[in-house]
Amino acid sequence: MTAVATQQPATAVIDDAARQLRRTLGCYPTGVTVVTTRAPDGRPVGLTVNSFASLSLEPPLLLWSLANRSPNLRAFRSASHFAINVLAHGQHELAMRFANPALPDKFEGVALHEEAKEAAALAPLIRGSLAWFVCAGRDAIETGDHTLFIGRIVQHAAQQGTPLVFHAGAFARLEEA
């Protein structure tokens, strides 16, 4: 096993170290989510995130992080609620759509839940997601080059299926052991 130092004095070396760190982090498979909220003007905002994790069952808390350079940071910092939409295998295109910062309307043509009207009014819920969590924002902690968002789960739902997984820089399929 090779250890990699993350502090390097030269920019080129830092870039190489950052690439190596990213490859090392990529050894850990993650689920793929689209985190959504509503901007102060009611406009839906969303982005693809794989930094989602359960934090606590009592109280029910979860967390995710967003790069401080993201154009969506202000919307999430000012929102009272956000939703985590856990993508199902086969929703690769949705993941790529919401990962594209240049796309002007990421929600165009995306089917949203209408049944959970109260929850959907707080944050858009993507139809076909394997699961969704609506959270009241609790903490936004700036740390390193990201802001860590912690939310209290106020509503959630799940369906059976296979999650969309990201591993080693690519989408992967979860296989039974």
Rank of each mutant, 00 (worst) to 15 (best):
V110I: 10
A111G: 12
L112V: 04
L112W: 00
H113I: 12
E114K: 13
E115M: 07
E115Q: 14
A116D: 15
A116W: 09
A116H: 14
K117T: 15
E118Y: 03
E118I: 05
A119W: 01
A119V: 02
A120T: 11
A120H: 09
A120E: 13
A121S: 13
A123F: 03
P124F: 00
L125S: 04
L125V: 04
L125H: 04
I126H: 00
I126M: 03
I126K: 01
I126F: 01
R127Y: 10
G128N: 02
S129D: 00
W132M: 02
W132N: 01
W132K: 00
F133E: 03
F133K: 01
V134W: 00
V134C: 08
C135F: 03
C135W: 00
C135Q: 04
A136C: 10
A136Y: 06
A136T: 10
G137I: 09
R138H: 13
R138N: 11
D139V: 05
A140R: 03
A140H: 04
I141T: 12
E142C: 07
G144C: 09
G144T: 08
H146T: 11
H146G: 10
T147N: 00
T147M: 01
T147K: 01
L148N: 09
F149M: 10
I150E: 09
I150S: 09
G151F: 08
G151E: 11
G151L: 11
R152H: 14
R152T: 15
I153R: 06
I153F: 04
V154F: 04
V154L: 11
H156N: 11
A157I: 04
A157T: 07
A157P: 04
A158N: 08
A158W: 07
Q159G: 04
Q159A: 07
T162R: 12
T162Y: 06
